[in-house]
Write a protein that binds this DNA or RNA. Structure first.
Lengths: 201, 201
DNA sequence: ATGAACTTAACGAACGCTCATTAAACATCG
DNA sequence: CGATGTTTAATGAGCGTTCGTTAAGTTCAT
């Protein structure tokens, strides 16, 4: 059977492999694990992918595909700089909250990815929205280094999302603090104070 | 022979296993890999540790040991809130820059650690300095949620350190932006503006 | 009948781990 | 002090299992 509905076997494999790689990492998942998930024999995977690494790279490309467009779009909508920043921050937090696999794969690639893969990830996935964020940073906080400001904006959202499983055991935590909307709101509260008040003196 | 100098064979194993686990992860390192690093047979490792997981957990405990003291100390030194915050931020950035293995292991544990291990990490390693940071956050920014502020402070340092290998390929990067001292300085520039200006209106 | 999609079977290598054995270090006691 | 037994640390061989991967054969729609 070539297609079921609209999705090819190849895509079916990728979609079922992504959660496995996200939760267990490259070395934590075997070809037989993936095959079992797709309900076929491990040997059949080699009909679609040259080897395990090729399957993994294809799964990455598939998981990261079209992830940047939403962010670029969010920041591109006209409005005051703070409105555009707010839309970016909300979209980032909301998107990460909706796709925990993407959040996990991103962290794994950051640690395990070699130079080639990191470069690909940076240039193919993040370059476009980051560029937009960079020019927004220049508008909004011209006194500081734009690259640092742009990363700091991402940090105020991403670090809360990434540390959520551990923060549960740190003092002062309660369930509200893990919600993407609350994280975005908190990040914007800090950023708004920061740039509106800060850069005018 | 029981000891060579001051370090036992058991500690020698742990110290040599830590960089391996940091770079390749639990599943990426075999008992034979570790044994080769210590220049002994894999079977000998089982004389010191019950199994691979016990070795890994011991390596974690060893790598995380005494890491919190420096941070707690940095924030405890008397001074104005901003001075104490500055000392904390500088110590955090400097410490992470000096120990990339610790930085990598921390990220791996955040992704791979189960509930038990995350709780242990949070309570044994981070609870003490985080508590101090929490009361500092209350002093310095009483209008915001203390937990969120404390995490945000860490985020402004940690996220730059963690993303350093990938940021190299993002627009606006240059070598200076990876130095711990510069990262600490940038974080403080944002934080100082934030709290001094922000929370007084 | 041809080629794509898949199965069954199996390969060699590597995995975590156990075993019997040994050499050295240590402790005990005549 | 020296002989004795005990403990410790390490070796090398090898267990059973799983790994990634390959080869050959089967199914089936075109």
């Amino acid at each position: 059977m070539v297609t079921q509905g609209l999705i090819s076997t190849r895509e079916d494999i990728l979609e079922r492999a992504i959660p496995l790689f996200a939760r267990l990492g490259f070395h934590g998942v075997s070809m037989r694990d993936i095959a079992a998930e797709v309900e076929m024999q491990a040997a059949a995977l080699y009909h679609h992918f040259a080897d395990k690494e090729a399957l993994y790279l294809a799964a990455m490309a598939y998981a990261f595909k079209d992830k940047s467009v939403v962010l670029t779009q969010a920041i591109a909508i006209p409005g005051t700089p703070l409105e555009r920043l707010n839309r970016f921050v909300e979209t980032l937090a909301e998107g990460m909250g909706r796709d925990p696999d993407f959040l996990a794969l991103l962290q794994r690639e950051r640690i395990d990815g070699n130079e080639t893969r990191l470069k690909l990830l940076a240039e193919e996935v993040f370059a476009e929205p980051f560029d937009a964020l960079l020019t927004l940073a220049k508008e909004i906080a011209p006194a500081h280094d734009s690259h640092m400001v742009a990363i700091s904006i991402c940090a105020l959202v991403m670090y809360h999302m990434e540390t959520a499983p551990m923060r549960r055991f740190l003092p002062g935590w309660h369930t509200t603090l893990d919600q993407p909307k609350f994280i975005a709101k908190h990040a914007m509260a800090l950023l708004a104070q920061l740039f509106v008040d800060g850069d005018q003196k």
